[in-house]
Design a protein around this nucleic acid. Structure first.
Lengths: 332, 332
DNA sequence: TGGAAGTCTGTGAACGTTCACAGAGTGGGA
DNA sequence: TCCCACTCTGTGAACGTTCACAGACTTCCA
């Protein structure tokens, strides 16, 4: 009942262990006769290579670890997660690499990740929604293992390559659009200021508005619905004559919408409302949200391409920022 | 620059390889002196055990694979994914097991999963949103490895243990509630009929309505927003006097809401609308959705408990169905 | 015809652990 | 006092691969 090993295959094929190994790894210098016999023996015995044994000698683990940041578990909204994970699995599988998931929440978690990677159990690391100042980032970088991030790592843009959307440009698109619609008093609800989406979407906003962007019209949220609601309330209280709001995420926009409605403001007649992400909620609110779409699938693809290049030995792979698209619906 | 091995630690501690191994694995029969010296040497050298080498001899992989079903990628809505994955990582990490993600979409994918598991690279399998008739389920079961599913596997309820919410009971709660509210013509939008949520939520619906539940008032969706929209349109066309709709998911309910609004129906005045899941969208629609909450986190917890018990050698672990909770909001 | 270059094969060693075993030392009860 | 049981330690073998090397055989050109 034991699993067949390379020896069993060799015996069945009438060749040596070495030849079977060569066939397995597609090496040159194997006669067709030997190759055929081996392939047949593999099929007959139902042999499947033991990666563990292989890893032990090759010193490559055959897997990549994806590190999920915990504290801001809402940062990457769920659709992003799903897309990123699926894309990662796909791309890695093509190369016979497997994806191991880990969480980096408290110090214990970080320690576990570091031990894992230092133990040589990963050929590369994929960072997801890492927040500014996370000590794990530098620690991983010191291990000299390929590390890439899905979305920039604030403060480490030049050391950890990444793929992301053009956060700043996207925010500019939305802001410019609101201005063009004739809105005069445009407020913004930002994301947390230790995330790229938080910082750069605000930058895009102020880029367009210049000094007209008064600090009074900016409130910070934490990506959650609830934070959108309360940020909107603060804005209304301070400046009741707001006629447009740009929320840094659709989810926060949906929260803002609730507050606006409760305050008797009509959207879009009294107040225009813009979101970001083009996630599912953008379609489920009423009115449907005008928003900025980011090419999630492609971002994930590019992130993986970078990682694979690094694993293949590339020295420096440039980061990429993909263009966003303004999606106009009924809320503006 | 090489990673320290158990030999290096042994040398540094002045003990033998065997003793270090015993310390590492918490075996009995290690003198305190030896233990202390070893622990110190481990700290000094920065040693971390090589799981690959360990796996090779112990024949245990130290990892569990989570299999995501692809075709119905919308089945388990995203919040579920995120919660399940996080909970899984957590629970496994406590036992020093790692989580490997795989996709089971086409035959090639399934083959890869099977090869991986047959190769002895997983100590257990965690199935997510597997649909009825998936050949992988039986194939995995034949490998004689612990397999558990998050949510029942239709047709294999007695062979693959699972944790889920009480789908049927939850649907009964909602239906009964709509009846109590005085609604006379209650329609249902179901999920796909090869998923537990699709089948059992419909069962709960007909349980309560009995013969009053005419087939004319039942339409099938595929969990997506769009399918909710079109199912609602078909229902309205067939029975314009509907005064309540129970959608098997919040997302489909949100689609139904769009259609109702377009048709000039007021919610809840003309038509009451109920959802299922209590996901994020339930709060972002207007009016906010009355829905059935399922205890996602606990479902994930219980699923993992079952898996860990099986890995520990338990023969049969019973499946569990956790109670749901009716959440009344503004749509009814 | 000789030998260099190229093709193909088998074998020993290594990767870093755990496990089983054997042996040494200690203490206590008959 | 002797022996048995218990505690502790070190060592060889094994897990299933890949890699480097050595050797055999073929081909082709000078």
């Amino acid at each position: 009942m034991k699993r067949p090993t390379i020896h069993d295959v060799a015996a069945a094929a009438g060749v040596s262990r070495g030849t079977v190994s060569r066939v397995l790894n597609g090496d040159r210098y194997v006669s067709t006769a030997a190759r055929l016999a081996t392939e047949r023996a593999i099929a007959e015995t139902g042999y499947v290579v033991n990666r563990t044994a292989r890893s032990l000698v090759t010193q490559r683990s055959g897997s990549v670890v994806m590190v999920l940041s915990e504290p801001h578990e809402k940062i990457f909204e769920d659709p992003n997660y799903s897309t990123s994970i699926r894309t990662s699995i796909r791309r890695l599988a093509e190369r016979d690499l497997s994806l191991v998931m880990m969480i980096a929440g408290d110090a214990g978690d970080r320690d576990r990740v570091l031990r894992y990677v230092k133990g040589g159990h990963a050929d590369g690391v994929l960072l997801l929604s890492t927040h500014a100042g996370d000590p794990l980032v530098d620690a991983l970088h010191d291990v000299h293992i390929p590390v890439v991030s899905l979305g920039a790592v604030i403060g480490r843009e030049n050391v950890i390559p990444y793929a992301a959307c053009d956060e700043r440009g996207g925010a500019q698109q939305m802001t410019r659009y609101l201005v063009e619609q004739g809105r005069k008093k445009i407020a913004m609800i930002t994301g947390p200021m230790d995330t790229p989406g938080g910082i750069q979407r605000l930058e895009g906003f102020t880029d367009v508005l210049g000094r007209k962007a008064s600090k009074k019209l900016i409130e910070h949220g934490d990506w959650t619905r609830l934070s959108g609601e309360s940020a909107m309330a603060r804005l209304l209280e301070r400046s009741p004559d707001i006629d447009a709001v740009f929320a840094a995420s659709d989810v926060m926009a949906s929260g803002a919408l609730t507050t606006l409605r409760a305050a008797g403001r009509r959207v879009p007649e009294d107040v225009a409302l813009g979101g970001f992400d083009d996630s599912d909620v953008a379609m489920s609110t009423h009115p449907a949200l005008t928003t900025v779409r980011q090419p999630l699938a492609e971002i994930a693809e590019r992130t993986l391409s970078i990682l694979l290049d690094l694993i293949d030995g590339a020295e420096h792979v440039p980061s990429v920022a993909l263009p966003t698209q303004l999606i106009v619906r009924d809320s503006t």
